[in-house]
Design a protein around this nucleic acid. Structure first.
Lengths: 198, 198, 198, 198
DNA sequence: ACTGACGGGACCACCCGTTCAT
DNA sequence: ATGAACGGGTGGTCCCGTCAGT
């Protein structure tokens, strides 16, 4: 059956993911991936045109997963600030995969600078998230829970903070409890954004 | 004179900086650096034990510069929030070097994951900055301008936001006016941190 | 029906012919042939034991065609010199296929040097042609239209000239009107071979 | 000293020449060349940017040699036909290198079809030779030793014949005494070109 | 201080032919 | 008879660091 093909493919992607996350994209050779995946080079290049193509596919799978996760929690809120806090808390679990796959972010970012195709795939999501937060802020302003500010800027502030936490978590996973910092940061940001009646 | 030695060294470091920033550390060969610096390989390896050693030196020079910049603005404030805002505004100029040298951050981060020596050099400063902000927050609490929160967490929130802005600025320099976002973000954070009298 | 088998075979041979002629034997991969012929690798290796086997088959088909062409014009002459001229003129049409299939000659020659089997198949015809011309010259001497020379050498001279024109035509199809040169050359050769009564 | 460099370079070119002539360009790997030349790959790629670059250099050296040879015999003739015959006879020695380096011709021709750069270098000389013969024929017409024909065509006839002999000599070095055939052919051609007074 | 030829190793991509299932 | 996954191996290129020589 064609089950075998899929299994091989999955072995490759998983091995690649692990190795890229551990040693970086540049320091991981195709031969190493094949060895880890117990697959021949012929098989590898049958499934992926290039090492980079595999990388891009990993990136896309990855982003699709994240999108899925975010879409879920999108509708579970009554109040905008509550919604944001919920999302911040949901991040905790996400940040715990530190060693496994989070480092891939750094790889994606690095490669994005050098390859336009990867850049597009990497950057696009941020814009999407920003738009999402932007509309949340607008909603918050409408419902009176958030003070009047430029929703675009506000959204970018949130995105930047999130990305910053992510980066720190990748660079220094043992250093701090980044989940705590994420929650705390969002709370502070929300306090700063909150509408205040004198 | 021994001037020649220094000039050679400077040519190498400058060429390397430019090439690393443009094409990345991994994609820049020693030969290319030598070609750009109009220097022979022998000269290169006379001044630097390794490609990595050069990289580390660049990193250290870089960090020293940043420290210098930050130290300047440290004493110019009467009020903690004002001080932070001043620093945020000072960042604007810094973020404008986007194309020239900011991309080096990404390179440093990438390599930090793979090499402990670089990791130490790269991570240490964040801790220093965090401590600095932490003491600022303590001062703020003492002077009554900032509400009571864990100074550690607060400081990390600031660092994360700053790092996030930096990363976005590197990845998408044309996308937004990151200086604006930086200022705006700090303002929101300060509003969130401000002590409020009911 | 078993028609399908033959159609597949023909698609493969035709695609291979075109690709070999265009990119050369060594630079044409089996995968490329299969792609062009819209056939899977399985089908290819079902019909041909090896890439080389296909090549040999192409060679043989090719030679059979040429033999057929030459056999036609063999009997239409009354006079040996006239016969040769007629053949030379007949070549014009042949030389016009320059782009399509003539380049295969060069491929055959190249491979002939490296592979004995191909060598035999490629060289044999020349000897046959030489013998043919040799007997023509003998006839010419007998009928008094050609002066007394070693028919063997004379025949080789003709073959060499023909082969030379062919090679030039393959290498520089746009450069000259090789048909003209062929005719002109044969005329000069005939003048040189003609018996002359002082 | 820099003598070493030249020696290495020469070892590479000589080994390459021998291997290309014996096994063909495509079937000779860089590793094999290095092994034969007792040189490391690093040395190889220090001297030649590419396998092809080495090939082109061989081609150019080769052509320069031939040009040199032809230039020598250019002035040794009183009479055009005699000059041509002298050149034909001089060819004998040239054709005797059959095994050593003549096969390179075939390699050059093969590659010329595939690579424009090589094509230029390979084709250009033929045109030069043709021009040379063309002016010889003009001289011959002027001095009355050659009959009136288009010097261009006549020159191409000579070139084609020469190339044809060369090709045959490469393909079937043992088959015939190609030196003889060359001489004989030129004689016939001269008879055909000779002006004849009735 | 500097030169550049050099060693040796690795890496990505590709390619030919086989195998198993259909 | 055909399709697709696969195996194993090679090929060209490049790159880092060294070392003899200036």
């Amino acid at each position: 059956v064609q089950k075998r093909s899929e299994r091989t493919r999955k072995q490759i992607t998983q091995s690649a993911l692990a190795l890229f996350a551990q040693n970086g994209y540049g320091s991981t050779s195709v031969a190493e991936i094949c060895r880890t995946a117990q697959v021949s080079k012929g098989a590898f290049y049958h499934h992926f045109k290039t090492k980079q193509a595999l990388f891009v596919e990993l990136l896309e799978t990855w982003l699709a997963q994240i999108d899925g996760t975010l879409d879920q929690s999108r509708w579970e809120m009554d109040d905008v600030p509550q919604g944001l806090m919920a999302m911040a808390n949901a991040t905790r679990g996400f940040l715990r995969q530190a060693d496994e796959s989070l480092p891939m972010f750094l790889e994606f970012w690095s490669q994005a600078r050098l390859d336009p195709a990867i850049w597009n795939a990497t950057i696009a999501p941020y814009r999407r998230y920003q738009r999402y937060f932007s509309s949340m802020i607008e909603d918050g302003v409408a419902e009176g829970s958030i003070k009047k500010i430029d929703p675009n800027l506000g959204a970018w502030v949130i995105v930047c903070f999130a990305v910053g936490v992510l980066l720190q978590c990748v660079l220094d996973p043992e250093g701090e409890d980044w989940g705590d910092i994420s929650s705390q940061g969002v709370r502070v940001l929300l306090d700063g954004l909150a509408r205040r009646d004198s």
